[in-house]
Amino acid sequence: MKILVGYKRVVDYNVRIQVKPDGTGVVTEGVKLSANPFDDIALEEALRLREKGVAEEVVIVGIGPADLTAHLRNGLAMGANRAIHVTTAEAVQPLTAARVFLKLVEKEQPGLVILGKQAIDDDANQTGQMLAALWDRPQATFASKVEIADGKATVTREVDAGLETIEADLPAVITTDLRLNEPRFIKLPDIMKAKSKPIDVIELGSLGVEGGDHLKTTHYAAPPKRSKGVMVKDAAELVATLKQKGLL
């Protein structure tokens, strides 16, 4: 079985995001970029399935600008067999990303596609579900445990009510939650090895994906600030203050 993994590059989760004063975007110049944390988890899960003998090949996919190569090399150093780089100068919205993934699925015929549950830049939480719909295959979102056997995935999902388990026939789309696994660290020798692993470069325009992103972002604003409050000296004062506010 082949596993396709979404491997998006985003602003690192430790960066304090600044909105540009003119409201046209957020500052990304000189800011640290990293793999979307949920995608590192997706890749780790795919690698573990390969190590268990469930899968033979792990292919990472990045949709983005020309300079995505270094980022994809990281995923290859982590252990992916090869990478597909779909090039586009503009950031793509989830429906377009899902349509791109569908084209790659048709070409690669994977048994499993593992994506992050959300990209921490747009926080959309859509691409995996959209791909599953377009492909007319099962989806198991927010996975915290995955077992593959007999052509089926048994997936435990983190839902608001607790933990839900569902069974999905393969091929299927899984999206990862935080507690699925802990991604491994990249080792130095693997960085060297990754240099010779193949990266297929495909121009988005050549895939014949139905056109266009549908949402127009017209303005960026900083969130309303909560002002710093007051410090109280002890438990008694805290309780008295909360009672006075009618909160206790």
Partner: peptide
């Protein structure tokens, strides 16, 4: 925008061939 809605709505949007506004 609960786990129920987050799971379902994008699948609906894709079937309709439209974008989704999250959250």
């Amino acid at each position: 925008s609960t786990t129920f809605g987050k799971d379902l709505a994008p699948r609906v949007a894709a079937l309709l061939g439209v974008a989704q506004v999250s959250d």
